[in-house]
Design a protein around this nucleic acid. Structure first.
Lengths: 342, 342
DNA sequence: TTTATTTACGCAAACGTTGCCGGTATCGTG
DNA sequence: CACGATACCGGCAACGTTTGCGTAAATAAA
């Protein structure tokens, strides 16, 4: 593009001064007389001068931009998180480069490679469901690229993390079923690799145990792509429905799995909650409009994004190496509607 | 961050060569002997050398990044468009900086100011509903910043645009109502400033006219913030319900207005389609799960984003000034479900 | 008046990369 | 043996900005 912006040189030439004088005047250095300062500032304003951020980046070795990796932008949860990240980032003069891994390790690696070669100052990431080799992220972390994990975190890597209390969320949801006299409570989870899957499943099992219900492994199904592949959810649902002793309640441990399962059950004319009670993770406001209105475990997504961004900016802007890392754990919200109680 | 990347200088020093030789070797210049090339390339690979994109940007006067402005990321339509944009951009080595105007002109101006000062190579934008002063965008366009409009376009500015056939979409939806014997068909539209609002309303009026139905202006309501403010939709709905002659069908001309209205009608226990038939713009897959299943006008959002990105890259990478601009007009999809027919 | 101090500005280097211009071997040709 | 051609490589400037250092003029102190 021919879009030529005015530079500090242009100002210097026009006013018969040196570039250093102009630079200093614009930054209000005490070394420049008030008269010259005014002249320079007025002229700069007149031609609408903007410092070239690229030149700044080159000099200061920072780009004022942060990378964000999520599995899918179109997922309500993630777009809300991004909102939160943006709100903090822009307030602090950073811009946000958003990418999606589509739950694929290959893509995730590519993206990380790309992002870091594009020189981002820091990274906010929810790792893909396929990821079980964290060496690449570890390398980046060891090269001291500031990283904040959210949602799907990696235990091994010591840095700030923002999650929700997945255990409690699912514990409560499962308990809610138990209290409503459901006997065979099944679960469909996302990728088994993920920290959130483990935590959520732990909450499910603990709730059963606390009420003297034995865990039946045949009632637990996994979707390795977190529901991004339609068939994997169908397979899981079909498997559960094919059991001799069918489940009477279903707790769904990932956003996409929840809506996909709901959709499948409707297609099969399975009444909720009569034939099958349902509750699941989901952050869309639309679930209240479903028929039946869907009970959900909802996450404070905006808040998560905002906190992750704040922590990352701390990391980036701290002078000395940070050694104390925070694990922010936010409470999920359980919203009981029609689909989960008789 | 202390994250120090290897530079071409490091390679030069380590191998006792000059930076220019290294640079040329890495770019496979014929002026460098095969032996030296190999040595340099091997060493570069060993230390995982990556050219510094910031330095490149400064030199080449391009940043390989494009700015995107939408009103709200969490809106399904826009997140799908962004998906489309990303798919093309990343394939071509560009990264995408996404921002949201929240339907506010003030924020839009701020963002544009910010984006252009961050030196983007081009801009893809769906203007905010409040915007009726386009001078800022015009200035950018005249400074020959490549711009592609989508969804909400500005007639005055001569550049590539990607829209859907809003007129046809609403014409068909309205005709669908008429054919189903609905008599008083109302419409709730977004901001009156917007091109899409005008086109959609024109489709509505034409359909009525073609069936000898007089247009009743009291049946047309506007939401200046496109439904982002909850109250404005409530006001519009209440006004329609307060009419002596209530409408029996409702066509909703913006994504958020559709879901908001649907939600309001449910709360008021107004049966759809018996008391009020409803169809509206919306791109969420979830509308099929609503009760009643919602009839929608759906847009090929991914495709729109992909086309917009392609056109923008053409603009950016074309050697000589482009004077022929394209207006891509994609067909919307009308999905009839329960909410719009008896 | 001379010297010391302050004020106000310019010069040049640096960030990482490319490209122009130039230079030095080595080789081939007559 | 001399000369041009070729192959291969280095020096320097430039992109826009900041910053340490230098320095002239102006002012203050002796």
């Amino acid at each position: 593009m021919k879009f030529e912006a005015a530079t500090i040189k242009d100002i210097a030439k026009a006013l018969g001064l040196s570039t250093s004088t102009v630079s200093r005047a614009l930054r209000d250095s005490y070394e420049i007389s008030e008269a010259t300062k005014k002249k320079i500032k007025d002229y700069a304003a007149a031609i609408n001068y903007r410092p070239n951020p690229v030149a700044l980046s080159l000099k200061e070795k920072r780009t004022l931009s942060i990378g964000v990796v999520v599995s899918e932008i179109a997922n309500t949860f993630f777009s809300q998180v991004i909102n939160g990240i943006e709100s903090i980032a822009y307030k602090n003069g950073y811009n946000v480069i958003i990418t999606q891994s589509q739950e694929s390790v290959a893509r995730e690696q590519m993206i990380l490679d790309y992002l870091t070669s594009r020189s981002i100052d820091g990274l906010i990431i929810s790792v893909s469901g396929e990821t079980d080799d964290f060496s690449y992220l570890k390398q980046l972390h060891e090269k001291s690229l500031p990283i904040v994990f959210f949602d799907r975190v990696i235990e091994d890597i010591d840095t700030h993390k923002v999650i929700i209390d997945n255990f409690q969320g699912v514990y409560k949801a499962t308990t809610h079923f138990i209290e409503n006299k459901y006997k065979r409570i099944a679960a469909i989870a996302g990728s088994a690799h993920l920290s959130i899957t483990k935590d959520r499943l732990a909450g499910y099992k603990k709730a059963l145990a606390d009420h003297q219900i034995a865990v039946d492994e045949s009632l637990i199904r996994f979707c390795d792509h977190g529901g991004l592949m339609v068939e994997e959810v169908a397979t899981a649902v079909d498997a559960l429905l094919a059991l001799k002793q069918k489940p009477d309640a279903l707790v769904l441990l990932a956003d996409k799995i929840t809506t996909e399962t709901f959709s499948l059950l409707k297609k099969k004319n399975i009444r909720m909650p009569e034939d099958m009670a349902v509750i699941g993770f989901n952050n869309s406001k639309y679930t209240s409009l479903f028929s039946p209105a869907l009970s959900v475990i909802s996450q404070p997504a905006f808040e998560m994004g905002a906190q992750a961004a704040s922590l990352l900016l701390n990391l980036i802007e701290s002078k000395r190496a940070v050694t104390e890392f925070r694990l922010e754990c936010l409470p999920p919200e359980i919203i009981i509607r029609e689909s989960s109680q008789k």
